[in-house]
């Protein structure tokens, strides 16, 4: 457990002993002081699908659609197979491992591109990139033309269906927001919170410690982004993936 979490836990315990409940949260949020990066370490991912479930709960993501999902890549001799049964929501059925050369899980989410094609193509300005580096959708303004869904190279967007729980979001584009409502209040995104192996981590460049930590990761491991040839400059970094992952 990292120091920040430890301190927070101590704070919680101390609070319960003294009877003083502390609210650890930034009172005001200034987005120019923050900048978020996400790191997915596939060498740690166990494909349990807890991130998928947590995301669905936290963000009211409807059935069959995903703000985040987990893919499994399997190398056989001479071919690669990819699967993602129901986005990895229920985990993955075991494969018979006779001919498997290697295999790992790849969690996917919106890459929060620095040069986002979805924002470029939105005809009305209903999707935009905030100064802290998150691409958001204005569900009250989106006309539902789906151009952004076509433009996203990563399949990270979908049209919120009519049977979805959030009424105002129906028939508009929806996507991962890094749990913007959480990160702006000093909480971690739901998927990061529940990831049992710390395969998913988020770093705020506005926080000196987190910045150092991210730099250390970049220093010590080889980092890839998905589909760099698209020129989108993703902010989700992957550790341990092969070029076949796209």
């Amino acid at each position: 457990m990292k120091r920040r979490g430890f301190l927070a836990a101590i704070l919680g315990v101390a609070g319960s002993l003294t009877g003083i409940k502390l609210e650890v949260r930034a009172l005001t949020y200034n987005w120019s002081e923050h900048s978020y990066f996400f790191v997915v370490d596939v060498t740690e991912c166990i494909g349990c699908g807890r991130c998928v479930v947590a995301c669905k709960v936290e963000n009211d993501v409807p059935e069959h659609f995903f703000r985040t999902w987990v893919e499994r890549y399997i190398w056989y001799e001479g071919e690669i197979k990819v699967d993602s049964p129901e986005g990895g929501f229920y985990g993955f059925p075991e494969i018979d491992d006779e001919d498997v050369m290697k295999s790992y899980f790849v969690p996917k989410l919106c890459n929060q591109c620095e040069n986002p094609p979805c924002v470029q193509v939105c005809p009305v300005g209903a999707t935009y990139r905030t100064p802290d580096g998150v691409v958001l959708v204005d569900e009250e303004y989106c006309i539902g033309c789906r151009y952004c869904i076509q433009a996203c190279p990563y399949g990270a967007r979908y049209l919120y269906p009519l049977n979805g729980k959030v009424e105002s979001r129906r028939n508009t584009a929806d996507k991962c927001t890094f749990c913007y409502h959480r990160i702006t209040k000093n909480s971690k995104p739901a998927c990061v919170e529940v990831c049992p192996t710390r395969a998913r981590r988020i770093f705020d460049m506005g926080d000196e410690k987190q910045k150092e930590e991210l730099f250390k990761i970049i220093e010590n491991s080889s980092i890839r982004v998905l589909k760099p040839e698209q020129g989108t400059k993703p902010r989700v970094f992957y550790i341990g993936i092969d070029s076949e992952v796209r």
Binding site: H64, F65, F66, W69, E71, K81, V82, D83, S84, E86, G87, K108, R146, I149, Q150, Y154, G155, A156, R157, Y158, L159
Partner: peptide, 11 residues
């Protein structure tokens, strides 16, 4: 394999 969100043809 298709990305899970792609099962719906938007246009």
């Amino acid at each position: 394999y298709i990305y899970p969100n792609e099962f719906e043809v938007g246009w």
